[in-house]
Nucleic acid binder design. Sequence first.
DNA 1: AAACATATTTAGGCATATCTAAATTAAATA
DNA 2: TATTTAATTTAGATATGCCTAAATATGTTT
Lengths: 231, 231
Amino acid sequence: MTKLILMNTFTEENYLKAIYKIAEEGDDFITTNDIAGKMNTKAASVTDMLRKLSAKKLIKYKKYYGVALTENGKKVALNIIRSHRLWEMFLVKTLKFKWDEVHDVAEQLEHVRSEKLVKHIDKFLNFPKFDPHGDPIPDANGKIISSHEKSVLLSEAKHDKNLVITGVKDHSVSFLQLMEKSGIVPGSKIKVKAVQPYDKSLSLVLNGRKKMFVSNQIAKNILVANAGGRK
Amino acid sequence: MTKLILMNTFTEENYLKAIYKIAEEGDDFITTNDIAGKMNTKAASVTDMLRKLSAKKLIKYKKYYGVALTENGKKVALNIIRSHRLWEMFLVKTLKFKWDEVHDVAEQLEHVRSEKLVKHIDKFLNFPKFDPHGDPIPDANGKIISSHEKSVLLSEAKHDKNLVITGVKDHSVSFLQLMEKSGIVPGSKIKVKAVQPYDKSLSLVLNGRKKMFVSNQIAKNILVANAGGRK
DNA sequence: AAACATATTTAGGCATATCTAAATTAAATA
DNA sequence: TATTTAATTTAGATATGCCTAAATATGTTT
């Protein structure tokens, strides 16, 4: 029997999302092993799926020579990312989840098949441009603000400037929990006072009053922009 | 490798829900074919699944002698039903979906695995007792108001009494759309003026002003209670 | 009680998505 | 350039959930 409705499985969607994210991180040569790493699966399984996605013209795939999304594949990936980030926003803003609690649930909700649902959530949230981690939310046509345009790493930021947290690079629960506890969340104001030459750790002032220290390791995972630099 | 986390698949959950609903309709002897009908699948597939659910002690199953949910199975079914009805309520009340548009989406959302999510939606909606179709929403412990306790079919209701619509029996899109268009929705006030002896069609007054006729076929799918009879 | 009709189960297959282990290819090194 | 190493692909299995067709059980007629 032929399949009447053309639809991607959850797994296919997750592979496309993973490929998109690896590409976004800068790799323009995306390998089977890269994907296996991101998907927590084995290279052999990835090869199987790549053949399938290629047959559906969602990726360009040449054996042994890596992978790239087609226009169509990119569209599917961005749609899932849009849905994921809107759901994260909904969970945090409307249902009062903490920003470190939303990922796994959004990972499920993103696959619910209903354009209308995503549109309505978007409208309900008043068309947010960024999710709770500071990542940009693609619009319904897949247009996305190029990731953190005007942002730099906190570890590279100029001293004594008024900065605002725009996002984080590490999305792990442990990192997010640490940030949440310290009050370093998107929107917070921050100023770099000094850097220890020895270990490159930073002295900061948060929201104009709280003094704190963070390691270079942490500062490298925080994105900031000049205060007022992003609406 | 042994499965570390004990979890039911979407399909298993749907079978349990189907069995629960057939039982609720009055059948106390539930057959393989009953389930195949409800699940839109074949008897052979049902047998496969019954063996599986039985092994997991979610149903009591004796070959050729029908099926009943165990306490545990009932709990799982009621949990899914709770989630489904809360999501329907959310879609209608918060996202302004029509009551005839919510079923398919809720059918997907009900399977999202997060107790916290369901609890938060419940709280956000202010702990509703009934869904948009008038069906009772089980609480977090699986306690459910016995379906339409004080309700009777509109076709059986007394004349010239002030009644309120409490629910519908037919949940098909076409029926719901018809009801929506006529204004016969849970909460509406209604009074039976007369019944045609010939075809048992009813003359009604809706919300104290709109006069209308409905066939007996329709009236048999509408539940009503004495106005003020249910909070 | 035997024969029949109907419902149910079994047997054998298919598709998806996964895995391990073996074979193959590409790229780096000697 | 030949060899080695590392990545990738293929081959062959497994589990889920579904199917069709054949076998079997139940219960109802005759």
